[in-house]
Amino acid sequence: MAIVQGLIPPSRENWEWICYVWQFFPLITAIQWVIDWYPQGKTSTESRFNIPGKIGWATMESVGFLLLLVIFYTLPKELGIGELPWGNWTMVGCFVIHYIYRAIISPLFLNPSMSPISPLVWMLAFLFQVFNAISIGGWVSGYGPTTVEDWAGRYWAMEFGLVIWAWGLLGNMFHDDDLREIRRAVDRKQRREAEKLGKAPGNVDKVYMLPKNGLFQYVLFAHYLCEWIEWAGFWMVGGVHCHPARTFLVNEIATMLPRALQGKRWYEKKFGKDKVGSRKAIIPGLI
């Protein structure tokens, strides 16, 4: 049953067009190389139009995995496909697991606080998720492999890719939690002091310190690096010809690399180059 005729789920023609257009997303992110303005997270700005961080993040990130699931459960019926092979289910599982963590569990249950998000950033992130979900969703739901034979001969590569994906996800979770602990520690301290003074504790929305555990010893955005590793493993699961997974990885890098370099400049300005030391932005020893 089509929710939006020809788009959700996508027709073959529309899917191919979206996949083609989606390859040019790095042209949009190119602006991040020339300006440092990015109204979200540590570089968020004051505005009455801002969206609360937790709600904004959850809503803009959740649409991706929800839309992919809708396509996965509707498109095969439209194409007359009775049952998709386990490789397709594996890729859907990897995608959904990541975004349940990133879009639901992390912002709504784990993060002590999140800085507000500009509506512009929210809209661009929302569109990123929509294009990405249709691209990957179409591939795993009928426009890519549709039989067990389509996956034959590359089980070892899929297994290796799953291992890389899992390590990337675990690394992402570990370094995310290291960042959370910075605010949790400050929050605990403020609450103890507030209790002694009989006052309400302050918020920790804008509390930032230099992270130092794990790969943070070498780069400032280790959680970004781990996410790249995760999606590189995802592409390996799909195979070299899985162009939606490849485009996803390229678009992630195009978005996050200039953001990490901006973030490094922000850390150096706030804490001083001597405190940042020899740490790179995102790739140890290189960038």
Rank of each mutant, 00 (worst) to 15 (best):
I35A: 11
V140W: 12
G80I: 06
K77S: 11
V250A: 11
F49S: 10
N172Y: 15
W165V: 03
L69G: 05
S106Q: 14
I18N: 07
A232H: 08
N213W: 15
T146W: 13
L79A: 05
K196F: 07
M123W: 14
V21K: 05
K269E: 13
A194C: 04
T43R: 14
Q23R: 13
C19E: 08
L69I: 09
G198C: 08
I287A: 09
G93R: 08
G161L: 12
A133N: 02
G53Q: 05
E149Q: 14
G6F: 11
F128Q: 00
A245F: 02
Q23I: 07
M91Q: 15
P211N: 10
M158G: 14
G198A: 06
I8D: 03
P116M: 02
P201N: 08
T146G: 09
V219A: 12
G277F: 08
R12I: 02
K275Y: 04
G56R: 01
V219T: 11
F49W: 15
W17D: 04
D205K: 12
D176G: 13
P258W: 01
A200H: 07
C19N: 14
I28G: 11
L108C: 11
L69T: 06
A30H: 12
K189C: 03
M209T: 11
L197E: 13
F24P: 02
I283K: 05
A200P: 03
A133I: 02
V240I: 15
L286D: 05
T29C: 14
W167F: 15
P284R: 05
E16N: 04
I8A: 05
Q190F: 08
W22I: 03
K206Y: 15
K196Y: 07
G214L: 12
A232S: 14
V207K: 01
P258Q: 04
L169V: 06
A125E: 00
I71N: 01
G64Q: 02
K196W: 06
T45Q: 14
A194V: 03
M60L: 14
M91R: 02
K77Q: 07
Y224W: 14
Y155K: 07
L197Q: 11
G138I: 01
I164R: 05
K54E: 06
K199Y: 07
C242Q: 01
E252K: 02
C94T: 13
H98F: 15
I229T: 13
Y73V: 04
V96A: 15
P116F: 00
E16M: 07
A194H: 06
F126G: 01
F49D: 11
L79K: 04
A200I: 06
P39V: 02
K273A: 13
V70N: 01
K189L: 07
R180P: 03
G64C: 09
T45A: 11
P112A: 08
P112C: 13
D205N: 11
K42D: 09
G64E: 02
A133D: 01
P145I: 06
W266D: 05
P76Y: 10
W122F: 15
K212M: 10
N14P: 02
R184S: 13
K264D: 03
G161W: 01
G263K: 00
Q190Y: 12
G138M: 02
L197M: 09
K280W: 09
T147V: 12
K280S: 09
H243T: 14
K269N: 10
W15M: 03
Q217S: 09
W231Q: 00
